[in-house]
Design a protein around this nucleic acid. Sequence first.
DNA 1: TTGAAAGCGCTAACAT
DNA 2: ATGTTAGCGCTTTCAA
Lengths: 344, 344
Amino acid sequence: MGRITIRDVAQAAGVSLGSASRALNGGKHVSARIARDVAAAAKQLGYEPDFLARSLRTRSSGMIGCLVSDVANPLYAGTVQAAEARLRDAGYLLVIANTANEPARERAAAAEFRGRRLDGVLVAPGSDANNETWRGLVAGGSPVVILDRDAPDGDGDDSPWPAVLVDHRGGAQAATRYLIGLGHRRIALLTPGARMRPGRERIAGFQAAFTEAGLDPAGAIVSTQESSMDFAHGDALALLGGSNRPTALIALGTRILAGALRAARDLNLSLPNDLSVLSVGDTDLAAVHAPAITALRWSLEDVGRAAAELLLQRLRGDGAGAATRALLPVDLVLRESCAAPAKT
Amino acid sequence: MGRITIRDVAQAAGVSLGSASRALNGGKHVSARIARDVAAAAKQLGYEPDFLARSLRTRSSGMIGCLVSDVANPLYAGTVQAAEARLRDAGYLLVIANTANEPARERAAAAEFRGRRLDGVLVAPGSDANNETWRGLVAGGSPVVILDRDAPDGDGDDSPWPAVLVDHRGGAQAATRYLIGLGHRRIALLTPGARMRPGRERIAGFQAAFTEAGLDPAGAIVSTQESSMDFAHGDALALLGGSNRPTALIALGTRILAGALRAARDLNLSLPNDLSVLSVGDTDLAAVHAPAITALRWSLEDVGRAAAELLLQRLRGDGAGAATRALLPVDLVLRESCAAPAKT
DNA sequence: TTGAAAGCGCTAACAT
DNA sequence: ATGTTAGCGCTTTCAA
């Protein structure tokens, strides 16, 4: 028993192959009688179109690729999910490729995507500098939308590629202003390396807040690190254990925050009196910690949705006039973990 | 400028289409000269095979579907990631479909998968009872591996379908034993509904521990709920605010744990003296909380890896003799959040 | 409006 | 070992 093809349907309905195809696709040139007969036959036989064959013919696979470094990262997962939902509604399937930040995997995935004729790609390269991944993707000819990264050839704010960006700079600046307003003069920013846009932008916003307040930039301590919890813990211990320790900390809300909080606890620093802590990203950990951690929040879902929308726009071909990029806002959620520094 | 086909390569190498195909696929019946020439021509032209066309011919898409209710759930994400890694190594692409527990979406995804000729499926249906999703998947004829769910027609432990199961029952039983050993007689289990295997198994293990200890089963309080943090919070407040409140809590380590911890804090219950808390799932939150939360831990990655392995086995056709299901262990990680109940 | 036929790019069966 | 040919199931000209 083989699969039921459109041929079988045509035969059962007593019409030609072409007519069956047109009828099934709601084409304009079919008589009511044929449309009815074909639909009936299809239903009766339980016909299901073969997308592979269709794709081969139409040169469109109906699939979108998603190239991301770490799907399991809670700061990405929501984005992927939202994008998938929107794309599925539009009839596309989402193919994911986790790259673990390895350029070789990125290249391989890009080639794979091309070979599979994916119609479009959502991508967050592990490093902005990785031109090759980029070119590989673009070489496919299908539209590419960037997730919160700068394109290799984009000079900061003028890349020609559609992208959904999060205003990490504005967020970091607002957070830093807030802490400065509270009276802090030595603040540390704990963030993963500056290789990628989010980190870079945060550092820029962080430093800008010091500059605009006319403060000694030496008080703006940038500690870049990998996002491993243990490393963050050791690093935070060293930072907080020193004699001239910062009075406030801004930490990425994943494992880095976890490590920092552990370090504070190890050193018997009580929040917010001995130390103010602010989380970048509003995670469960930040919300439920005692005291609850003041956090920078942005919508992961909006990133995914906006990216899907941008891509669909291109796919439909009306991307010419429309906006090519979106900048999503970051809000400061005030909670209990920040206060004026203790007088010394 | 069109895409370079295998035809072009054959022509450039001065051989026939068939020879080029054989050479490219490392077939056994090609002379060294042809193999070399074809490889050279392919490289020189930058030939990339078209998977779509190949799939149409071979009736194998080289893609695996992953049907899951919520990719953004940290308790799933790691599994998906690990599965993707293993499958990619084997040359497959992972297609994800997020179903948000909606049966309609599950059905739609199953149909879509069939139409796209996916070679296999990894699935964690939103509800075990949903036969239809199940049949739809199986109807495709391609192998299906279940992720920590009971198949609709499986009677608990005897389903014929390959599956990767986590020993939630054993874990819950061990955790409950531990708390009972500490002296607790009133313990609450906070878990999402019993619609799905993990919840059901935990409840079974929880109650079994009471039974084997010869304790009054009335002390085993099962509170099933959705995993929304706010609901869990309200529920936990009611539970802990009552006169005859439990002295220990076992909570699923996602938002439910977060809600419970907030509730404990709201009620000024200090851990572990006033209340012992045990997390099901070893999340960042559990590890970094003060005091650190004793937790049940299992490897998400192992689930994904094992599932991928099981599927690949079937795909290779040697699934006949091999094990059809895996039961992964759950460990109890002792930390600081549990102690003997206060004397009253 | 409808049917016949071409062909998407590839692999595999069949000749040679 | 190599070339030739026939499709995979579909959409889309091109005639009629």
